[in-house]
Structures are given as structure tokens and as C-alpha cells.
Design a protein around this nucleic acid. Sequence first.
DNA 1: AAATCCGCGTTTTTT
DNA 2: ACGCGGATTT
Length: 752
Amino acid sequence: MPRGPATRIPGLLDGLNAAQLEAATHENGPLLILAGPGSGKTRVITRRIAWLCTERAVDPWRILAITFTNKAAREMRERVEKLLPAQGAWISTFHAMCARILRREIEVLGGYTRDFTIYDTSDRNQLLKQLLKDANYDTTRFKPSMVGAWISDWKNGLSERDPAVTFVATEGEDTADTGIESEVFVRVRGMYEAALKKQNALDFDDLLVKVHQVFDEHPGIRDAYASRFLHVMVDEYQDTNHVQYRLTKALASVHGNVAVCGDPDQSIYAWRGADIRNILDFEHDFPNPRIVKLEQNYRSTTTILKAAQALIEKNTERKPKDLWSEKGEGRKIVVLQCADENDEAREIAQQIQGLVREGRAHKDVAVFYRVNFMQRALESALRMARVPYQIVGGQEFYERREIRDLIAFAKLVMNPSDDVAFRRVVNVPSRGIGDKSLEVLAQFAADRRLTLAQAATSTEALSSIRGRARSGLESFGALVARLEPLKEAAAGIALEQILEEIGLEKWMAEMDDDTGVDRQANVDELVTFAHAYDAMVEDSKRVANPAQGVEALEGGLRGFLQDIALVSDTDAMKDDTDKVTLMTLHSAKGLEYPAVFIAGLEEELLPHARAIAETTGSNPESGIEEERRLFYVGITRAEERLFLTHAQQRMFFGEYGFRSPSRFLSEIPPQLLEGYEPDREEDEMLGAYETKAEESFAVGDRVEHDHFGRGTIDRLQGAGVNARATVHFPAHGTKTLLLQYAKLKRLNKEGR
DNA sequence: AAATCCGCGTTTTTT
DNA sequence: ACGCGGATTT
């Protein structure tokens, strides 16, 4: 045995319930853990890893655990490290794992080197836009983001199905020339794939696809990994897509020890290719698995759990499951109706202050929302109320221009063939190189199948460019050449060197526009982060033990670029600071907080309009059902307090629109809501959240309003909960009112 | 080539 | 409301 006798960990399995114990100590063969929210599955996985290592003498480095996000990976690693002194388990996301494998293996595919660049979604769209332009396609008709989404769909389905026709038919505006459109898509896809290869670049989906390809074409390599990993575990299995399923299968192909964990009710990524059949068909894909259901919830009060349960039972496409909890009833759920998004944000800030007064810490509170733009109003209200907060996701930091520029320089150092990076920074800071001369260069490059960087060093190409542009290109070429040795440098040193060479002063001065953004501070932050990264790498080298299979991190500028390409801001979230956390519902998966706010419970927001319109798939309700699961995920993050808010009006695209409460609100049993009084107010409560037949009004009717007095109806719009009337009140002017709330009384001809 | 202005679409959700 | 791309100046 490569490892010494296993050290037993006293109390490792203490406190596990029967089902958890069964899962944690399952030995060989497939294992399916169906885990309800808050049922302690992370606990099971971490204990299981520790149990295998100590009780079954499995070397940690022979364990592979896949999580959905980098943050989840980090947390799991920390929890395992607390249990186990020995290190070396691979705990990462599919993407990070694949990047790591490709760094070592990609050269067998031919044409790629280990210095490959990773293109994120915006790099991808940038490249597509360039290709579409070069091919003279109208980029408003063929939007790069749309083509990109379609290509992504194709890759995630691993070419099993070709979505060409259906995609265009559902997303495109006119279906008349669908055939032509899909032809263009296919053609652009070919150009895109060729460009990626030429540029030694992979997009996010390629990370998975190329590993699959390596495994497929080189069974020896596949077997090497599959033999190495004695146990493979995949968390959030309900959100895996087809490529990920295939990779799981390949990695488990030698030992067959695959443990997956998930909850079909929390599947919220169908839109990016997640295939819920992976978990539903697990028994078929990996025959005779042990199946363990974790149904005891340790997180939420029964009030919260009942609400979640009642809601999710409205979904038709699900397997029934019985969640229960020994926690008490706790407080009722609070529903707050607000005037608009600012009122909503203020209300949330106020409620948080109330919770803090009751003795809760800020970090015990989270606010969730459906779409990122809702973050703005919340942020400003919290700032005004002096409530400390942090925001998860939104990619904010890495989206900043100065950060992207600096990273583009670094990518160019690592991979001079990266044309997207080249275009981005060739004129940063300005060297007099404009579109015209760039086009000349690009044309030259295209004619001879060169990358832009190669063309830029050709005297022949330069001779066709005159004046300032020429000297600019020359000096840029010289700059890139000077930076070349940094390829093998530590990340922090490399970035500092780059900044020095490009002329930080001039660069900053040029970017210094009105906005007063502290770009210098952002750049400093990235450099500081790079130094911290280098330190971490040094640490990992110290504990590395190649003889036992414990590898050090890749490190250097190369490793740094790889890591930041896959890391989002979500991962930078600290939970040791006492701040309220703001995030989208999607980011909330896997987390828990004593108090949770979910904002924007309105039709067309949650469920989102796009999901309502969705008619693809066999089930016309499937879009709605995914939204319902998303809300379910949100609710089940809450331990004790749950607040749901909705606004009557909300700013959209710079205009206020009337909003009706989400249908999901009416799916929560009213007796779980605060303010519910069965005797007197039942009608009113129901009235607020259910679509009822509207009292009929007509244009010209005389009406009376509690506040505005008497008036005349000018206009009627909308129906059901969205019905509204534009009324002219002599005393207050013209108002548009939601009939559902306005309680308008119709007056007869005598004015009574 | 760079600066300024206008019009348009934009908002799901993330690795 | 805002950022981007395209058009129009300087």
C-alpha cells in the first residue's frame, strides 16, 4: 500500500442519521444520493471522503469530487481538510478539472499547446462578431451572442443532436427563411471552431468537450485517469449536462465507484444544457446502484419547509418526496407589497435593521433576486441605510475595462496567437493604430493564415501600413517581445512587469474619464491577488509529494490565468465578514442563511417572462416549472425567517411598468403567511394573490377612490391581476391604477 | 485617428 | 437608464 496504516478519526460518523450513515459508508459500486434541501449532503460527502481514506485506506489523491461552483469546491476542500490531515484529493468543478487535465494532455489532439487560452463568454462573442463581420453577415440579424448560445448548446449536447433548425425557429424573429439562417449558423460555427484552433484557444464548453475527445481518441489516457481515481463523486448531479455525464462515465469506467448526489427539485440549469434525465436515469446508466434518500431537513422551520413543499408539489414533472424536520414551527413568512423597486429596497433595508436590532448579525441575512439588474436599487437603499453588504456574482470585477486589458496583455504573453487579446490591447495605451490599419493587418494575416501577432512582425505586412500606425505596430510588437520571458514568471511579478512596460501612467491618464472609477485601485487589487496566488502556490509546493501522487498547483502566470478564467466573483465571497449578502437565486444554490429575503415576486420576473413564453419541449409548462424550482431553491435557503417582497410598479428599460404579484405567492398556503386571519380577512388575502373575475368597468364610468375622490375612467388596459384603469380625477389629475389594489367604487348616474 | 453625438436594444440565470 | 456601435466631427 502506498499509504501507511490509516489513522482512525474518532467520532467521524457520530451524529449521522441512518440514511446519512448508509451513504457515507457505502463502499463499492454506484451510489445515488437523493438529497432534499438541508438534508446534510455536504456533510455526508465530506465524511464519506474521510471515511474512505481512514477506514478503507484509500489514498486521498485517488479521490475525485466534483462540485458545481468553485466556491462549493473550496468549502468542501476546507471541510475535508478539517477532518483529514492528508491532502491531495481532487475537489473542483468540471471545468477546473478539465482545464487541469488539458494542461497536461491537450497536445495529443494536435494543434494545441499547454499554453492555450480560455475564452470566456464575452471573448467568445467578440470573436464571433469579428468572424461574422469578416464574412459580411449582418451582426444585428445574426447576433454574436445568439450564435454563441447556439454553439454552446451544440457542444453541451455533444453533437448528439444538432439544434440548428429548432433553435433558429424558436429564437429567430421570422421563420420564413429559417433554412438560410441555419445554414449561416452552421457555416459560422465552422469558422469559429477553426479560429479557436488557430488561436490555440478554448471556450468554456471546449474544456469539457476536448477532455471528452482526448478520452475518446486515446483510451490509454482515459484509463490512466479512470484507474487513478478509485472513487468519483459528483455533487448537484441534477444540473449536469450531457458532456459532463459522459465524462463521469469515462472517469468511473475502471472501478465503477461513482457516487452522485442531487435533487431533481433543485434543477435550475436546463437553459444551459443541464439534463435532468442524468439523475432520473442514473439507475439505468449505472446499473444496480444503491439508492439513498435524505429526507430529514436540518435547516428550516416547519413553516418554511411546508411552504416549499406546497409550492414544489405544483410541479407535475417530479418524483414525490417527503421532507420533514424536527425544528419547530418558527415565525410566519412575511409578504411585503411595495410601491416600486426603491420602496421595496428601502423596506428590505428597514426589515434588516429590525432583525439586527433583535440581535441578528448582518451576515445571517441574504437577499435574493431573479435578475442582476435588481441589485442596483437594493444596493443604494442598503448604502443609504448604512447596512453593510456584499454582492456575489455579476462578474463585476473581472468585467472592468482595466482588468480585462491587463489580463489580455498577460494572455498575449502566454499565447501570442490569441487574436481576441491582440485586438483588445493593440492600441492600449493608444499608439495610433485604428480600425483601418488593423483591417489591413487582419487581411494580410488571413491571406497567409497567420495570427495577428505573426503578421505584426512581418516587414511585408508593415510595409503596407504607413505613418503613425506603422510605428505604433512596431512598438507594440517590440513590447510583446520584451514581455515574452514573463511566460514562466510568477503571476505577481509578471503583472507588475507588464504594467511597467505598457506605461501605467499614460494608460491610466487615458482611461481617466469623468466617472471617477478608481481604476488604479482595481489594478492594484489584481496585482495583490496575483501575489497572494503565488504565495498559495509556494505553499502547495511545500506540501506536494509527487511520489504519493500529491501534485502541487500549476502556479505561475500560466496557472493564474487558468484559474481566474474559471473563477467568478462568487468565489471571492467571504463569510467571515459581518455583511448582508446579495445574490441572484441561481447563485444561492447550496447556501443557507438564518434570514432570507426574496425580492421581486412578480409575474414576468419570477416566473421570468422568457420562461412564461417558453413553449419548447414536450411540456408547455416546463419553463414555469423550472422557475418554480428556482423559487423553491430560494425558499429552502432560509433557516428561520423568510421575507417575500413584490412591487406594484418597477422600472424597466427606463420606464415604469405595472406589476402583478407572482402566481407563486398564491401557491403558498395562506395560513403560513404573517397577517393571515382566517375569520375576517380571508377574502382579502386571497383577493390579493389570486386572479379573480374583475368587477366590470367601462370607459366613461364615474368612480370613487379612497384617496383621490371621484373621477371618470378614460382608459382600461390589461386583464386579471394586471387589469388597470386610467382615471381622470378633477382634484388630482389623471392616474393609472391597478384595479386589484385601487378598490374603485363605481358610482351610478346620480353619483351614488 | 480620436473625440463626440445619437439611436437603439437591452435584462434571465453561470462555468 | 445605460452602454454600445455607427456616424459625424475635429
